[in-house]
Amino acid sequence: MKLKIAVYLFLMLAFCAFSFHDTRLFEKPAGWPAPTYNFTNNPLNSEKILLGRALFYDPILSRDNTISCASCHSQYNSFTHVDHDLSHGIDDRIGKRNSPVLLNLAWQKSFMWDGAVNHLDVQALAPIHNKLEMDEDISNVVKKLNASELYRGLFYSAFGDSAVTGEKTLKAISQFMLTLVSANSKYDKVMNRELEFSSQEANGYKLFQENCASCHTEPLFTNNEFRSNSLAIDTTLNDYGRVVVSGLPKDSFLFKVPTLRNIEFSFPYMHDGRYKTLSEVINHYTGRDLGTSNTSLELSEQIILSSKQKVDLLAFLLTLTDKEFLFNSDFSFPREILLSN
C-alpha cells in the first residue's frame, strides 16, 4: 500500500514537473524567490527556445533586415549595448535611453526603464515597432516569417504547426529570454559556500548591504520597483521616466531599479548612459547633490564613503560578474540555423 502511494505521488510529481516546464531548461536557483513569469501559459521546450534564439539574433524582425535584438543586446556585455550612452537602431537613428541588460527576466515584473511594458511576451513589440529601433510592424514580421521556409520549419518543430502567428512569435522570443539566467557569479558561489570573498570584497559586501541593498535587493539585485536616484534632468532629453506611463505626478523622475548582476560589463550606466564607469556611479550616490528631484526615501540620508570604502564596494560589485553566463554557448548566435542557408 505504502509503495502504491509512493508510486502515485512520484507520478503526480513527475506530471507536475512536466506540466510546469522541463527543469533542465529553466531551474530556479536555490534560495531565489518564485519566478513572476507564468510558465503554464508558455511551457518551455527546447525547440521553442531554439526558435526564439533564432528570432533574437535574426534582423528579419526589422524593417530593412538590418537590426536584430542582439544589435542592442549583445551577449558579451550581458545583453546590453556597449559603448553608447543612448542605444542606436535602424539607419543609425539614436534612441532616447540606454538599453538594459537581459538576464533573470523570469523574475522581472515590468519591462523598460519606465515599466511601459507589462509582460515579457509583449516586450519585443516595443523595439519592433519603434521608429528608432527596428521600425517594423509585427504583422509584417509574421508575413515575412510565413514566407520563409526556414522559419516555417522551425515553427513546425516548435509548435507542431508551420503557420506563424504573432502570439507564437512573441512566445518563442520569451522562451529564449527566459533561459537567460545568471546565477553563477562569485557572489553566488560565496552564498553557496563554494568560495569565499576576499577581505576587501567582504567589506564591500557589508557596505553594499548597508547602503545599496534596500533598492538593489539580493539575490536579484533589484527590488523591481521604480525609484528616483536624484539624477539631474538632461535637458537635451527631458525624460521624466515612469510618470509618462502612469500619468501620476508622484512618478516624475522615477526609473526602474536595474539589476547589478554583470554590472562590470553593462557600462555605460543609468537610464541615459551618462556615467561611463562604476566609480562615477558610486561618486554620484555619495555626492552632495542628492536630495533634489523627487528623490526616493532610501536616499534621503547622505551616503558617506571613504575612498578606501569606495574601492571595497567596487571590488564587491565585480563579484557579480558571471563569466559562465557571458560565454554560455546556449545563448550565442545560432550559427547552425542562421548561417545554414
Binding site: 509583449v122 516595443a126 509585427i138 504583422s139 509574421v142 502567428t165 504573432g166 512573441l170
Partner: peptide
C-alpha cells in the same frame, strides 16, 4: 497583436 489593436510602446 498582429490585429493592429495593441499598443507597442
Amino acid at each position: 497583436p498582429t490585429q493592429g489593436m495593441y499598443w507597442s510602446w
